[in-house]
Design a protein around this nucleic acid. Structure first.
Length: 263
DNA sequence: TGGCTATCACACCA
DNA sequence: ATGGTGTGATAGCC
């Protein structure tokens, strides 16, 4: 069974007049598709709250073992500006660095990637160790904006650039060995809106024991998706190809990498 | 040791 | 019929 659900409309009865809306008290509409054998259950989104310093309308996205928060972090004008700045500043991997080995065969990854972060940090992707470049001004600005709204600090960002709808990323989880398991991953989107799909690890494959429908959402220009633990443990995510998308998208995933003393 | 990663083939749908 | 999309098979490396 599949249903499209629009969640997060303004609560009936909320006066909606307060400037200092606590997190979750006022919602923007985004299209979230939550599918479930028994249909959709509406949760009280106000039940979840944390003290954030900036009042932003948050959208809670929850399923079994999945816990995300979605918000528009930047206005269109600011997001346009940031996108342009990143197009000038970010230097992407090329050549051998942009290749990946899958089932013995070597491919160029279907997107461009770059890693930035605190000095000396490294990140392993598909068995290849990348060292982080020093932060650029725009990446620092966005990082700080994320920190202000989430209260979380980050020492690393993975930049993915999808030149159009043909560029994509296959289903995966982020490497848990290197990541601080208690720190959420903050995913900032700039440019073309793209579909984003979560699938539960027990609902993959031909004969999976559980029937858990995927959670699908669209990541808008200037948005931020916070993936809270334990989401990354149970849910794979992907950015599927979309032939109709003709414009580029830049995605920034801010993380906290453990200083590699232990692996 | 097992889980990862992209592509291809093919089924399904409108 | 056609094109876009979703799912499974693939089988080597660390």
């Amino acid at each position: 069974m599949e249903r499209f659900v629009t969640r997060g409309q303004k609560r009936p009865g909320s006066d909606g007049a307060t400037d200092e809306a606590p997190r979750g008290s006022e919602k923007k509409r985004i299209k979230v598709e939550i599918c479930d054998d028994e249909g959709v259950k509406e949760e009280d989104e106000d039940a979840a709250f944390e003290e954030f310093s900036h009042p932003i309308p948050w959208q809670k996205i929850e399923a079994d073992g999945l816990d995300c928060d979605y918000a528009l972090l930047f206005s269109k004008e600011e997001a346009d500006h940031l996108f342009k700045q990143l197009e000038e500043e970010v230097v992407y991997m090329k050549g051998e660095e942009a290749k990946v080995q899958v089932f013995g065969k070597v491919y160029s990854i279907p997107r461009k990637q770059a890693t930035y972060g605190d000095e000396g940090l490294t990140y392993t992707y598909s068995g290849v160790k990348h060292s982080a470049c020093p932060w650029t001004p725009t990446l620092e600005y966005i990082r700080d904006a994320v920190t202000k709204t989430t209260g979380q600090t980050f020492n690393f960002v993975l930049v993915n650039r999808y030149k159009d709808g043909q560029d994509h990323m296959g289903e995966h989880r982020d490497d848990e060995r290197e990541l601080d398991p208690l720190c959420p991953i903050a995913s900032v989107s700039l440019g073309a809106a793209r579909d984003f799909i979560f699938r539960h690890r027990d609902a993959r494959g031909k004969q999976s024991h559980r029937h858990i429908e995927p959670v699908k959402l669209e990541l808008a220009h200037g948005s931020m998706l916070l993936m809270n633990p334990p989401t990354n443990t149970f849910w794979y995510h992907s950015l599927p190809a979309r032939k109709k998308v003709l414009l580029p998208r830049i995605n920034l995933t801010f993380r906290r990498i453990l200083l590699d003393s232990k692996k």
